[in-house]
Structure formats: C-alpha cells, structure tokens
C-alpha cells in the first residue's frame, strides 16, 4: 500500500505539486495500478535475464570528430530567460 505521505514524497522527487484532491486521487489510482502489478509476482524470474532492449546488439560508436553546431542561437531565442548568452535561473545557493 502506498500512503499519502509516500505520494507526497514522490511528487517532491519528481518536482510536481499536487493539490489536496489530486493527492487523494493519485494515492488511490497508484494503489490500483500497483495492485495489478502484483500479478507479476506469480512468475518465478530468478533465473531469467532482464531485457533492456528487445534486440541486443553492441552499441555503435562515433569517431572523435568535431562538428560545429549553431542551434544555441535559436534555443536562446525561445528560452524563457537568458542573459549574455547564458540561460538565467533564480539564484542557486
């Protein structure tokens, strides 16, 4: 069972703010979803390898060659707050 406190903690970790009614609702819904997930416990998977990707081959590698890129100008243009080619945020202590 997930408690309301856990839901609050998770929201904080995910940088989300939930209203009182949302907290209530999500606590119930998350518990319902996780109750369904309990079904997986029926399966013994001790000797089973985990699948991260359906097809596992070796990761491709890139050569160490510089490519110039200028998207930053367009990104700064659409950024919510910037100054002197920096992104600007409230003071980080």
């Amino acid at each position: 069972m997930i408690t309301r406190e856990t839901v609050e903690k998770i929201a904080k970790l995910a940088r989300l703010q939930l209203s009182e009614s949302d907290l209530e609702k999500y606590t119930g819904q998350l518990n319902n979803i996780l109750a369904d997930v309990e079904k997986l416990k029926e399966l013994n998977t001790d000797a089973i390898e985990a699948t991260t990707h359906a097809v596992e081959v070796a990761n491709p590698l890139r050569e160490d060659e510089v490519k110039t890129n200028t998207v930053i100008d367009a990104v700064l243009e659409i950024s919510p707050d910037h100054e002197a080619h920096f992104f600007r945020v409230p003071k980080v202590l």
Binding site: I10, L30, I33, T45, I48, A50, T51, T52
Partner: peptide, 27 residues
C-alpha cells in the same frame, strides 16, 4: 500520473521488485 508511477517504481528500495522484475517478465 505516469511520472508519479515511474518515479515510484524506480525509487530506492523498489527497483528490484518493480523495474527489474518487469524487465525479466519482458524476457
């Protein structure tokens, strides 16, 4: 809702029970 669910199943202490388990069932 999905961010909450995802954050929860990856959070400390639950990874093996949820995420790893699901990857094994995926196999």
């Amino acid at each position: 809702r999905r961010i909450m669910l995802g954050t929860y199943v990856l959070s400390a202490g639950y990874y093996d029970a949820y995420y790893l388990k699901a990857q094994k069932v995926r196999t």
